[in-house]
Every structure is written in structure tokens, then in C-alpha cells.
């Protein structure tokens, strides 16, 4: 069945391979450029790579911090390579995030729907194999193809964004484009496609409904992500008097700050507007620096909650597990839905 499935999806597989190869070539081309700038002393006396490896991580306004900021700006800002700055923009972020969903939906949506739509199940079910083998053979072949395609592009994206991740951290860099989660997204989209294809029984609508459904689920889970992660691994938090100094035990350059703000003695949040109003954001002497003696005088403290960059793989594991569990659940529902019907 593997051969049959690959042959049935030859057009989709070739199209996706060509498109992903083009994307990979582009990423490798631009990646080589910014790797070159990363590894040599390019924007200062020390290379950005050396700065990024510093332990403890560079503090704001240190030399290394500035080198890294310059490096980032060079590739993100107006003065940098316009292609790269677009690459780092949300548009490309979205495109790369679309890849797993697209691969899953293109292979999953028509997997069974097209057999039903075109009547070819009557050809294939009359061959000398059981229907169970037909189903599992198709599902396994599509899963293998999905893993190969998404795995390959994810490797390239992970390599491409490694310098960026070493500066801004894995969470802000490319959490959803790197590591395991793209594979989990793709497998979920695949399972969703198979299930919706069974219901819609028409391959093109199945593809689009799958994409829609996938992004609905993803945006829901993204909304819940902070709470979900906090549930599995509570974030770190620190509360300090901001008029004195940032304690070294606070969040580092690469950590993911999930929330920050002022609180009063009781730990209740104090709004920035209130602080600005009382401590005179309009007063030229204190403007732009609300973390002043005025704040200290009122006894307001600054509190930061964050997830350390070192938890990247743990969270990759959690996020992947969520999507893989969803994928299995959807697949099981699809099979159940089919069997439940009077035959």
C-alpha cells in the first residue's frame, strides 16, 4: 500500500518537495550570510557568537549586549539585508508556520476522500488485501511522507535560526518553527485531514476545511499556551525594588518573560497609568523613568514572571505531546465514526 499511496500522491509530493526545497535553498543562502557575520568579529571586537556564549548572559548595556543588539539590528533593521528583514518579519514567520499544516492537510485531506470521491476504493478494495491493511497502509505511508518533508525543512529552519535563538532565546526566536513541534503540528493536521476527508468525502474542500480547523485549534492552544506551560512547569518569578538594581537572579537575555509589572505591598498589580500619573510621566525630570525614587517612595515593587530558555526542550515536549495526543484522538474518532455507522 505504501507504493500505491506514494504513487497516488505523486503530484502533491513532488509539488511540496520542490516548494520546500526552494524555501530550504533560500534559508541556506541567507543562513550562510548571517552565520558568517555571527562567527567572526564583525560588528565589534568580539564575535557575536562569543558574546552569545557568555555565561552569565550579557547584561543590558554591556559591550557584548551592544554587539548582539547591533548584530540583530543589522539583520532585522532597515539598514540590514531587506530579504532577511522580511524573513524575520511576521509574514515569513506565518509562511513557515503554515508549512506543517499545509503538508498535513494536502496529504491527509484527500487520503481517503479522493478514493471515495472518485470511486477508486471499489478498485482497491477488490484487490487481494483486507480493508484494514488498505487503511493502515495509506495512513502509515502518509505519516512517513509527512515526517520526511516536515522533518527536513524543520532541520533547515532550526539551523537557520540557531544564531538568532542564541541571542533572543528559543522561545522568542522560533519555538513553533523548530525542534519537534512542527512535526507534531503536521501529524495533527494529517489526522484532522483524514477525519474531515471521511466526513466531507471530497478532497479539495477537505483540504481547506482542514487548514481552517487546524488554525482554529492552533490559535486556541496558543491562547492557552502560557497557562498550559505554567501548569506543567510553573514559571519563575521575582519581585524587587526597581529603583535599586536588577538582581542577577532575574530573567536573563534569552529567557521568555511572560508577564511583568508593578505591584503594591500586598502583591496586587498597580497599573502603569497610575504610576505615570502619580510619579509624573510628564515631569521632564522623571519622564521615561518611572522606576525612580518616586516609585520607591510609594513602595511599589516590580515583578517579573518568566520561563527560562533552558526549558525550551521541555516545552517542545509538552506542546508536541498535546498535538500528538490530539492527532491520535482525531484518528481514533475517525475510525470510530466510520465503524459506528450501520454497515
Amino acid at each position: 500500500m505504501t507504493w500505491v499511496t506514494f504513487r497516488r500522491f505523486r503530484f502533491e509530493l513532488v509539488t511540496l518537495t520542490v516548494a520546500l526545497a526552494a524555501l530550504a535553498a533560500w534559508l541556506i543562502g541567507t543562513g550562510l550570510q548571517h552565520y558568517a557575520a555571527f562567527d567572526v568579529p564583525y560588528v565589534g571586537p568580539i564575535s557575536a557568537a562569543a558574546c552569545a556564549r557568555q555565561i552569565p548572559q550579557p547584561q543590558p548595556n554591556s559591550e557584548c549586549y551592544n554587539i548582539l543588539t547591533t548584530y540583530l539590528n543589522q539583520f532585522q533593521g532597515d539598514g540590514g539585508n531587506p530579504l532577511l528583514s522580511m524573513l524575520l518579519s511576521n509574514t515569513l514567520h506565518f509562511l513557515i508556520a503554515l508549512v506543517p499544516a499545509l503538508v498535513g492537510a494536502m496529504l491527509g485531506g484527500p487520503l481517503i476522500a479522493r478514493e471515495l470521491e472518485r470511486g477508486t476504493f471499489r478498485l482497491v478494495w477488490a484487490q487481494g488485501i483486507t480493508r484494514g491493511r488498505w487503511l493502515w497502509g495509506s495512513v502509515i505511508a502518509a505519516t512517513l511522507a509527512t515526517i520526511a518533508l516536515v522533518g527536513a525543512i524543520t532541520l533547515v529552519v532550526t539551523w537557520w535560526s540557531a544564531p538568532l535563538d542564541q541571542i533572543v532565546g528559543h522561545f522568542s526566536g522560533g519555538f513553533e518553527m523548530e525542534g519537534l513541534v512542527p512535526l507534531a503540528y503536521a501529524l495533527f493536521a494529517l489526522a484532522l485531514g483524514i477525519a474531515l476527508g471521511l466526513i466531507v468525502r471530497s478532497s479539495v474542500p477537505a483540504l481547506f476545511i482542514t487548514l481552517l480547523g487546524f488554525f482554529l485549534v492552533r490559535s486556541l492552544i496558543t491562547q492557552l499556551a502560557t497557562q498550559l506551560y505554567a501548569y506543567f512547569m510553573p514559571p519563575l518569578t521575582i519581585t524587587y525594588d526597581s529603583s535599586i538594581a536588577v538582581p542577577p537572579t532575574g530573567p536573563q537575555m534569552r529567557d521568555w518573560v511572560t508577564s511583568s509589572g508593578f505591584v503594591d505591598h500586598f502583591g496586587d498589580p498597580v497599573s502603569q497609568d497610575l504610576i505615570n500619573g502619580i510619579c509624573g510621566a510628564n515631569d521632564p525630570t522623571t519622564a521615561g523613568n518611572p522606576t525612580s525614587a518616586c516609585v520607591h517612595a510609594h513602595g511599589w515593587l516590580y515583578t517579573v514572571t518568566w520561563q527560562p530558555d533552558s526549558r525550551f526542550w521541555a516545552y517542545q515536549g509538552i506542546e508536541s505531546a498535546i498535538y500528538l495526543a490530539l492527532a491520535l484522538a482525531v484518528l481514533a474518532v475517525a475510525i470510530w465514526w466510520v465503524r459506528r455507522r450501520p454497515v
Partner: peptide, 12 residues
């Protein structure tokens, strides 16, 4: 018939 059958006979 075909349509009915498809719905109920997709897999086993």
C-alpha cells in the same frame, strides 16, 4: 446506493 454505501463502508 453508492453514496449510502460509501458512508457506511469506508473502513474496517
Amino acid at each position: 446506493h453508492d453514496e449510502e454505501r460509501d458512508e457506511s463502508e469506508v473502513t474496517r
